[in-house]
């Protein structure tokens, strides 16, 4: 292929024509996503269990306080590795583009669902990019602060003043990432037809046209040039 596609990944393609379906994520990316999601939920639950006494009962999900304390940072490391893999696959199309600014200034139309007033977009809109970069930044903060307060592994190496700052930063970043997570799940459900991108791997042509028109156009133009079905 001559040059890198600008709005799509090379693997994104027209999956079927009647009805039109477009493949958005291959199996590996989807598995990667669900491992990450599972880790994040497990981390939120085990972390919140220690966050406030009112939620300590959540330790029962993991088999008690000691096990919760033990397993949380281990899941954290798995999350970090899993997210890093996703990052490598997704960062390019999550770079900001000029149309993101227009999209953000028209956030009222986004919320009202007035898609006609919005600019045409590539694979991700500014909201999705915000979730992506928010997760990226917060996961880095969480792994660094988390390792610093990892009693079992580095407990004897980290000074008390550093631990104090790290545990505060970790708690604040955890709250922030849970908010980003809620936003992410909410947007995926509110924008009907999105979830199947991460379950079946495909979206309908109508969905792609409505929300990610430049993405669809690029794939479609590639499709006609490529070998016929």
């Amino acid at each position: 292929m001559a040059h890198r596609p600008y709005y799509s990944e090379r693997g994104d393609r027209i999956e079927s024509r009647a009805p039109v379906e477009v493949s958005r994520y291959r199996g590996f990316t989807r598995a990667n996503h669900w491992v990450t999601a599972f880790c994040l939920i497990a981390l939120a639950l085990s972390g919140l269990a220690l966050f406030d006494p009112a939620l300590y009962f959540l330790t029962a999900l993991f088999g008690g306080g000691q096990i919760t304390r033990w397993i949380h940072p281990i899941i954290g490391v798995v999350l970090f590795v899993s997210f890093a893999l996703m990052f490598i696959q997704l960062w390019r199309l999550n770079m900001p583009k000029p149309e993101d600014t227009t999209w953000v200034t028209k956030i009222g139309d986004v919320v009202k669902g007035n898609e006609d007033n919005l600019p045409e977009l590539g694979k991700y809109n500014a909201g999705q990019k915000f979730v992506f970069w928010g997760m990226t930044g917060l996961i880095v903060v969480l792994i660094v602060s988390g390792v610093l307060i990892w009693q079992q592994v580095v407990g004897h190496l980290v000074s008390v003043p550093v631990r104090r700052v790290a545990v505060l930063v970790h708690a604040l970043a955890a709250v922030a990432i849970i908010l980003v997570f809620i936003m992410h799940v909410y947007a995926a459900i509110w924008t009907r037809g999105t979830l199947r991108a991460m379950t079946r791997g495909t979206v309908t042509g109508g969905w792609a046209w409505r929300h990610h028109r430049k993405w669809l156009r690029e794939i479609a133009s590639r499709d006609t040039k490529g070998p016929a079905e």
Binding site: I14, R17, A18, P19, V20, G113, E115, Y186, I189, W190, T191, R192, G193, T204, G205, G206, W207, A208, W209, R210, L216, R217, A220, D223, T224
Partner: peptide
């Protein structure tokens, strides 16, 4: 909000447009 709002549904004209673009080129 998720339970009580309508959600952002793909509309018929979106589907038609996609067909025009992809199938008819």
């Amino acid at each position: 909000h998720g339970l009580f709002s309508r959600g952002n549904e793909v509309e018929e004209h979106d589907t038609e447009a996609a067909k025009t673009l992809v199938v008819e080129g």
